[in-house]
Amino acid sequence: MLEGKFEEASLLKKVVESIKDSVQLCNFVCSEHGITVQAVDDSRVLLVSLLIGNEVFSDYRCDRNITLGVDLKSFAKIIRCGGNDDYLTLIAEDSPDSVTLVFEDKNSDRISEYSLKLMEIDNEFLKIDDMDYDSVIKMPSIDFQKICRDLSTLSESLQILITKDSIKFMAEGETGNGSVILKPRTDIDKPEQSITVKLNNAVNSTFGLKYIADIVKGTSLSNQIVIKISNRTPALFEYKLQSGYLRFYLAPKFED
């Protein structure tokens, strides 16, 4: 049996809102360690990998592995019914047909209970090996979101060039070109404003902005985004949770 209680419903709300436009049907695999999701978008360009570690929950128990096949569009509708500050408890039996969501308002005795029917979802599980990346950058997630949104007005592609002392984002389009250059900086008073670059090899990689537009929906999950890039392989975009992460692996575009 699964019983996982979030101190605030807002965390699961944000997670679901962050991935529901990338993938619709996915298995939430619940184990004693927490809840994991892995899913690939329909165009097979973007892979979503989520871990909500058991430490995120104020109470968590899951004696046996339980798979919840969820339609995220329906899940999102139910989650929106709860208040952000409500306790949210997920409950499921060992071989469940449905998952129950219980919202408890902290300021009153109101308890709202919803159940979502589950689906049999047959998706392949991809093996992702730990890689050494050419470069790892960390920067404020909101800055990354703004840069990507701004440059997407010009082009369908975002080129990322990383050297040891700069990160350059570039977009070239029919109506014009744009670029944003960032330099590493350490902000002692506000560490979340810091920008760091670790470089093994200089990077020059290009990605589809329509996928990055979906990735940056995770911005509210973390002050910082970690981007790990190697030339000619998928980049990893990571929002860290208090325990766990939301990761997006995005396949690059290649010159014709």
Partner: peptide
Amino acid sequence: KGKQSSIMNFFGTR
């Protein structure tokens, strides 16, 4: 501009 690659070219099924 550029050809979009697939994530499946990089990560194998388990």
